[in-house]
Design a protein around this nucleic acid. Structure first.
Lengths: 154, 154
DNA sequence: GTCGCTATTGCAACGCGTTGCGCTACGATC
DNA sequence: GATCGTAGCGCAACGCGTTGCAATAGCGAC
């Protein structure tokens, strides 16, 4: 029965994707712990791109006893629920995309350090090109492509 | 004066790109050390893709005292000479491309673990698409795109 | 051949991410 | 409300990659 089971009607009307997390976890035999509550709280304020390091730092502000391994493990769980996706930035660090509405790849400018989203149409073009090349089915979300943005080319 | 300065005529006829390395280093005020000689020796036998870890392991076989930091630093130097390029594999680890004849990107299959090269024409298509999108000038060599190869899709 | 400058080395320590393990505490059941 | 199986926690240790520093050793100059 996919009816909203949040006990708070005011919040239910907002229909944040985070609202059902606790129940979705429990429905799979998983648990809703203070540490996970904290992480979700942090993710709420970070819709967009965050590095794992940032998330860990923010979680520790809320609860000094939080350990990195817990954060990483919880992020795995949330990724299985489709609430975050992780990828590797150009320097190989982990980067999390919160609540991706649509699948998109990323561009990282080595000049100014900005991360840009690849527009869906352009992404589709890339996916098609690689499919035609080797029959490859690409997972764009996992990738950050390095280069220089318009403003950073001499 | 760009004449071959290798003292060995037999070797000069082979014209391996590695032959001039020692002199190219010295010409820039850099030095030719036993550790660098070993690394070059290892790279010679590895034309293609290698992980930094593999390189370090092979170097230690030749000389047990070699330390990781030395290998990484020497790889940086060789990258400046254009003899290797490094990128990040799908899992974020470092991967080196030895003697890249042409600029090419990489595809990593999460199914079978194989790394594939993106054909130059397809690569150019991707570069063009991103240039048209955001005016982005892409460095394809630095990137590995994850996905599933033809044989690994159900 | 010797000297001296300095690039390079090895070491040690750090940061990021992952993994194995024993203990804790969530939450279903009674 | 009390019990209990187990998911999840913190901890400690590991592997990869990087960096600062003191000691070493290329190599050009004399």
């Amino acid at each position: 029965m996919p009816q909203p089971d949040s006990p708070d009607p005011a919040r239910a009307s907002v229909a944040s994707p985070w609202d059902g997390v606790a129940d979705r976890l429990r429905a799979s035999g998983l648990r809703w712990t203070p540490q996970r509550r904290n992480l979700v709280e942090v993710l709420r304020e970070h819709e967009g791109h965050v590095t794992a390091t940032d998330l860990i730092a923010r979680c520790r502000e809320l609860d000094g006893t939080t350990t990195p391994s817990t954060v990483y493990r919880t992020l795995d769980v949330l990724e299985n629920l489709g609430l975050v996706r992780h990828g590797h930035a150009a320097d190989g660090r982990e980067e999390y995309h919160v609540l991706p509405e649509h699948v998109h790849g990323h561009l990282y400018c080595v000049g100014c350090g900005t991360t840009w989203e690849i527009r869906p149409e352009t992404g589709a073009l890339i996916v098609d090109a690689l499919a035609a090349d080797l029959g490859f089915s690409v997972d764009l979300t996992h990738v950050t492509i390095a280069g220089r943005c318009e403003g950073c080319q001499e």
